[in-house]
């Protein structure tokens, strides 16, 4: 894809891959490498301790930007949106393995769990997601995040661009269930292209 001169050349095949799967080269796609930087900053800021093979459980991660060209990651991803699954497989090959559901997972095997909360706003998504926190143990690093759109969204129900309809109030209701173990108030951290909520049980 044609890029402005000041953009990294490696972005071109990534945007091509979005198009090849019928997805829109949207704001978070254009900022793929900035999002990768954001995630790396998040891991650093919150002292995520990775083992030799960095094992991450990724939920609704779209393109899983942080995984790009990082051979040490082993990511298991739950991404019910088929086009994003195909995109992730194309971008990351065997470094990402897609899960059919979130049942019977041993959460202790992961160094980090990342949840894109837009998934909570989609109807028809497996509701196990909202009781996932029953499985979080003390010490497990869990973060929920929200990608920032180009234009601030003011509607309560809106399109995500891949054809899915996101219901903000459904998302917030489900998100409350997902963070019901946090009694001290939820902390939000602002990164350049996403907002992050710390769901670690022991903060």
């Amino acid at each position: 894809m044609f890029l402005p001169e000041n953009y990294p050349k490696q972005l071109s095949p990534i945007l091509d891959a979005y198009g090849a799967h019928g997805l829109i080269p949207d704001y978070s796609a254009v900022h793929f490498f900035d999002l990768k930087d954001d995630f790396e900053a998040l891991f650093k800021d919150h002292s995520v301790k990775f083992k030799a093979n960095k094992r991450v459980l990724d939920i609704g991660g779209r393109s899983i930007a942080y995984l790009y060209n990082s051979k040490k990651f082993v990511v298991e991803s739950y991404e019910p949106r088929e086009a994003f699954q195909k995109l992730g497989s194309e971008l990351h090959g065997d470094n990402v393995c897609y899960l059919h559901d979130l049942k019977d997972l041993d959460f202790n095997q992961y160094d980090c769990v990342l949840i894109n909360i837009e998934l909570l706003g989609l109807e028809g998504i497996d509701l196990n997601l909202t009781t996932l926190n029953e499985h979080f143990s003390s010490g497990l690093k869990v973060f929920a995040y929200r990608l920032r759109p180009r234009h601030k969204e003011i509607s309560q129900v809106y399109l995500l661009g891949d054809g899915s309809v996101c219901d903000e109030s459904l998302m917030l209701k489900r998100f409350k269930m997902l963070n019901s173990h946090i009694h001290m108030g939820l902390k939000k951290y602002e990164y350049s292209y996403m907002d992050v909520f710390d769901l670690c049980r022991d903060y």
Binding site: M1, G19, H21, G22
Partner: peptide, 18 residues
């Protein structure tokens, strides 16, 4: 929805990729 979405995705492939 699926009929529409697959048509729209084909158009996107042509515009953004092909």
């Amino acid at each position: 929805k699926s009929d529409n979405q697959s048509f729209v995705m084909d158009v996107r492939k042509r515009i953004y990729n092909q």
